[in-house]
Measured scan of single mutants.
Amino acid sequence: QLNLPENTDDWTKEDVNQWLESHKIDQKHREILTEQDVNGAVLKWLKKEHLVDMGITHGPAIQIEELFKELRK
């Protein structure tokens, strides 16, 4: 059970990391997002292209984008 703020805009980069870990996103990809200071407010704007530009491969980038879309519903 994750204990994250209800509003994703309030998520810290550590919260984002924890959420991605719960969805089995590889540590190396989570570390990239942490290094790039991606918090919840930033995550909602990220598209696959942004994630790929940061060095995340296409498969996980699509997965992260789709997971966040599902979360926002």
Rank of each mutant, 00 (worst) to 15 (best):
Q1Y: 10
L4G: 01
P5L: 02
E6I: 05
E6Q: 07
E6L: 04
E6G: 04
E6T: 03
N7M: 10
N7A: 11
T8M: 13
T8W: 13
T8E: 06
D9E: 09
D9H: 03
D10G: 06
D10K: 08
D10W: 04
T12E: 05
T12N: 12
K13P: 08
K13F: 08
K13N: 08
K13L: 08
K13T: 08
E14F: 05
D15N: 09
D15Q: 03
D15C: 05
V16G: 00
V16Y: 02
V16K: 00
V16A: 01
N17G: 06
N17W: 08
N17H: 10
Q18A: 07
W19L: 06
L20S: 00
L20R: 00
E21R: 04
S22A: 08
S22G: 07
S22L: 05
H23S: 10
H23L: 11
K24F: 07
I25G: 01
I25C: 04
I25V: 06
D26V: 05
D26M: 10
D26C: 10
Q27N: 03
Q27R: 05
Q27K: 05
K28D: 10
K28Y: 13
K28M: 10
K28N: 10
H29T: 14
H29G: 12
R30H: 02
R30S: 02
E31Q: 09
E31A: 08
I32H: 06
I32G: 09
L33S: 01
L33R: 00
T34M: 02
T34H: 05
T34R: 08
Q36K: 14
D37N: 14
D37M: 14
V38W: 02
N39S: 06
G40V: 04
G40T: 00
G40A: 02
A41C: 11
A41I: 10
A41D: 12
A41Q: 13
A41W: 15
V42G: 15
L43W: 02
L43D: 01
L43T: 13
K44P: 12
K44W: 09
W45C: 15
L46D: 03
L46G: 02
L46K: 13
L46N: 04
L46S: 06
K47H: 02
L51D: 02
L51Q: 02
V52C: 14
V52D: 12
D53P: 06
D53H: 10
M54G: 03
M54W: 15
M54Y: 14
H58N: 03
G59A: 14
G59M: 14
P60R: 14
P60Q: 14
I62P: 03
L67A: 12
L67C: 08
F68L: 13
F68R: 08
K69C: 12
E70Q: 11
E70V: 09
E70S: 10
E70L: 07
E70P: 12
K73P: 14
